[in-house]
Nucleic acid binder design. Structure first.
Length: 556
RNA sequence: GGAUCCGUAGCUCAGUUUGGAUAGAGCGUUUCCCUCCUAAGGAAAAGGUCGCAGGUUCAAAUCCUGUCGGAUCCGCCA
């Protein structure tokens, strides 16, 4: 925010000299790749041709005229004009702001008055909560928090996969191979077992598929027996899912899953047909999307049953109406790209101009539920927590609340590992990546936070913003990075990429740790200023971690 | 056959949307650094024809075209 002001002021100085619009200068004014090249750089070659001068000439001319109270010096480096700001003024702007705003630092009213409905996590009932579902869950959760911080009203929807022919399969296979005792003992594992068995048996015996379809038809028609079986499966699954959500401190505003829309599909079709032309093709009701280069959007199968197209249409219409949503976000894997392109096109054809975004992400390679080849979230979290506990016992055996801290660290490591890379890329599941506490990991950032807390606790100095700003020297790169929090948050929000925030926190931690190793903070003649910086770093780290859904322990 | 996404160091990735200054991290490898605020840390070394080939430009990892690898999707599963 404040750094934008510096940029703005420099741009207006330059534009005055060049007699052009301020915006033109702002657009090209950049931040140099290295800090020894200054705070802002003006690429003279972008204007030189227009003014019929060589870039170097232009740079020379400008350099003598760029003076103001916050500019330390101006340097010509090739065709670039590099502007250096005065450290004390920069530090004063950034640090005072953080000190005053505390955990509200980085908030903005960017999204004020706008409601965004975010569909995330959305696991399938009666299937294990695998590591594959973790991505949607943690990415969605973080986007929910980040957008909230930027002023949006967020509605988090867990669109449970609790309906469809798969439940026909499940009821049929449970009837054939199910075991009540096994179901009681470990419901999800047992249901997965019979589900996998169904698929292997169906390969030899294809009429099983028909049987499953018939069973689901019974459910749709309200058959009590089938439905009560389904209820049991659903309840058992939800119980387990909520355990994980609790561990990760994730909650939803709505749990309306697929079954919720069961009685809203016919209305949705009618509603759509008011504005969009549908047609019958091979007995199925479709919206032809050929002219948009897409395959048809199928509303009803030839046997009269609705599809997930219909269901997602009904859900979208419901969300737009009920929450008066300005934006709909779907945090769903990239294999469903086409599906959402189709859905968005149909909504557009219906006349909706809302922002519709498929926040897509790559998947873990080589994992598939149908083949029973799956990594369980429970196992990953448990192992991470266990390892964290071991590490604590080794490194800090006197720590209080060991169990609680181990949970913060273990879960943090897993969540962060999944968030820190660009969501679009496919990932190879690797235990070492999730169970690593060094380098670019949550424990690294958490450790940095704990270090800050420790210093603050030991120092006798009271944190205050009445410090000697002239004593800012080596600290300046750290301070400047603190000032960029707003920019990176904005980018993360705009691109729906928590990874941008995660990278920022890693960089901030790295800068702090370098500083920490090089300089003493307590009893070094400059304690008041440095303590303020430590307090600000701590504040931004905690704030940033929270927005990622990771907790920041004070000791570890 | 049609469409989308990915390809950067031994491995995992930033940087590509908005083209600019010697392409950055982490892991692993090789050295150092705890009588001093938490070594889950810090300092340094080694490691790259940015898949390949063209094109646009004063300037390309970044934009365009082609091509090769890998992944994914393409109406009666969700």
């Amino acid at each position: 925010m404040f750094s934008m002001d510096f940029k703005f002021e420099i741009a207006s100085l330059i534009s005055k000299e060049l007699k052009c619009k301020k915006e033109e200068v702002i657009e090209v004014l950049e931040v140099p790749p290295e800090s020894n090249l200054g705070d802002y750089a003006f690429p003279c070659f972008k204007f030189a041709a227009k003014l019929k001068k060589s870039p170097v000439e232009l740079a020379k001319e400008l350099s003598s005229k760029l003076t103001c109270k916050f500019i330390e010096k101006v340097e010509i480096k090739g065709p670039y004009l590099n502007v250096f700001l005065k450290n004390d003024l920069v530090a004063k702007e950034f640090l005072s702001e953080i000190f005053i705003k505390k955990n509200k630092y980085g908030m903005s009213d960017e999204g004020k008055g706008k409601t965004v409905v975010i569909d995330y996590s959305s696991p399938n009932i009666a299937k294990p909560f695998g590591i594959g579902h973790l991505r949607s869950t943690v990415i969605g959760n973080s986007i929910y928090k980040i957008l909230g911080h930027r002023g949006y009203k967020c509605v988090g929807v867990n669109h449970l996969g609790d309906w469809g022919t798969q439940f026909g399969k499940l009821v049929v296979s449970y009837k054939k191979w199910g075991d009540e005792k096994k179901l009681e003992k470990d419901p999800i594992k047992h249901l997965l077992e019979v589900y996998v068995k169904f698929h292997s048996e169906a390969e030899i015996n294809p009429e099983l598929e028909d049987e499953a379809r018939a069973e689901f038809k019974k459910m749709e028609n309200g058959d009590k027996e089938s439905l009560s079986q389904w209820e049991i499966f659903k309840e058992l699954s939800l119980e387990e899912f909520k355990k994980y959500y609790g561990m990760m401190n994730i909650d939803f505003d709505s749990w309306d899953g697929e079954s919720f829309y069961n009685d809203k599909m016919e209305d949705a079709i009618k509603e759509l047909e008011k504005n969009v032309k549908t047609e019958l093709s091979e007995g199925a009701l479709i919206v032809n999307l050929e002219e948009y280069g897409m395959t048809p959007f199928m509303l009803r199968k030839s046997d009269g049953a609705t599809t997930y197209h219909t269901r997602d249409l009904a859900a979208a219409l419901y969300r737009l109406k009920k929450y008066k949503a300005d934006e709909l976000l779907y945090v769903v894997g990239s294999p469903q790209k086409l599906h959402f392109d189709q859905l968005f096109k149909v909504l557009e054809l219906k006349g909706h101009s809302n922002k519709l975004v498929h926040v897509d992400f790559g998947h873990f390679k080589g994992l598939s539920t149908r083949k029973g080849n799956i990594v369980f979230l429970e196992e990953v979290l448990d192992k991470a927590i266990e390892l964290a506990k071991k590490t604590i016992n080794k490194k800090n055996p006197k720590l209080k609340n060991k169990d609680k801290v181990a949970e913060m660290i273990g879960i943090g490591a897993v969540v962060f590992a999944d968030l820190s890379n660009d969501r679009i890329k496919d990932a190879v599941f690797d235990w070492d990546k999730f169970l690593n506490f060094e380098g670019e990991t949550a424990p690294y950032v958490q450790y940095t936070h704990a270090r800050c807390c420790s210093v603050l606790k030991k120092s006798e100095v009271k944190v205050s913003k009445n410090v000697d700003w002239n004593k800012i020297e080596d600290e300046i790169s750290l301070v400047k990075h603190l000032g960029r929090f707003d920019y990176f948050l904005d980018q993360a929000a705009r691109q729906y990429k928590p990874s941008i925030l995660a990278r920022y926190l890693l960089d901030l931690s790295s800068l702090f740790n370098s500083f920490y190793a090089k300089h003493k903070i307590i009893d070094d003649g400059n304690e008041t200023t440095r303590i303020l910086i430590v307090d600000c770093v701590r504040n931004v780290l905690e704030n940033g971690l929270n927005l990622l859904g990771v907790k920041a322990p004070e000791e570890m």
